[in-house]
């Protein structure tokens, strides 16, 4: 009996808190709508995905390989990112470039987003600043595992 009453009391308390926030927010948003300045603002809610928030300049999103001036990838397939990656999700294979000043270029550069933890270590490790995580692409989802294995050299 006592227990049942206690539960009911807590439920009502919860409903009261929700209701208080709802009406307070509605009041402040309505005031703003009519151009009346109040001391407080209503809670900020973004209608994602119709509405998007700007990403911070330091954000980390999907990787990309930067290109040289002539369009070749600037990656030299040194595999330092492969070495540093704590999730072991990078796979790079090197190929020969005919230019003796370049020599080494990636034949295959795959990042497995199934495993990537977006730590950005690969970006830090790169000696030629070839890999960056600034594409702004954060909506990364696929219906197959293979769909999240992304070839950066073929984009």
């Amino acid at each position: 009996m006592l227990k049942g009453w206690l539960v009911l009391r807590e439920l009502l308390r919860g409903a009261a808190i929700t209701g208080r926030h709802f009406f307070a927010n509605m009041t402040f948003h309505t005031l703003k709508l009519f151009g009346i300045r109040a001391k407080r603002r209503g809670a900020v809610t973004i209608q994602y995905p119709e509405e998007r928030k700007a990403l911070s300049p330091r954000h980390r999103s999907l990787h990309r390989l930067r290109a040289r001036e002539d369009g070749k990838p600037s990656c030299v397939a040194c595999m330092l990112c492969v070495t540093v990656c704590p999730s072991e999700c990078l796979s790079v294979e090197a190929a020969e470039d005919d230019d003796p000043e370049i020599q080494k270029t990636p034949a295959r550069f795959v990042v497995d987003l199934n495993r990537c933890c977006f730590c950005g270590f690969c970006v830090e490790a790169c000696p030629v600043d070839a890999i960056r995580m600034d594409t702004g692409e954060i909506r990364l989802a696929a219906s197959t595992r293979a769909g999240l294995e992304i070839s950066l050299d073929k984009r």
């Binding site: 030299v76 040194c78 330092l80 020599q103």
Partner: peptide, 8 residues
């Protein structure tokens, strides 16, 4: 050129 050198 350590990044592209096999001896690195």
């Amino acid at each position: 050129d350590c990044p592209i050198c096999d001896k690195a």
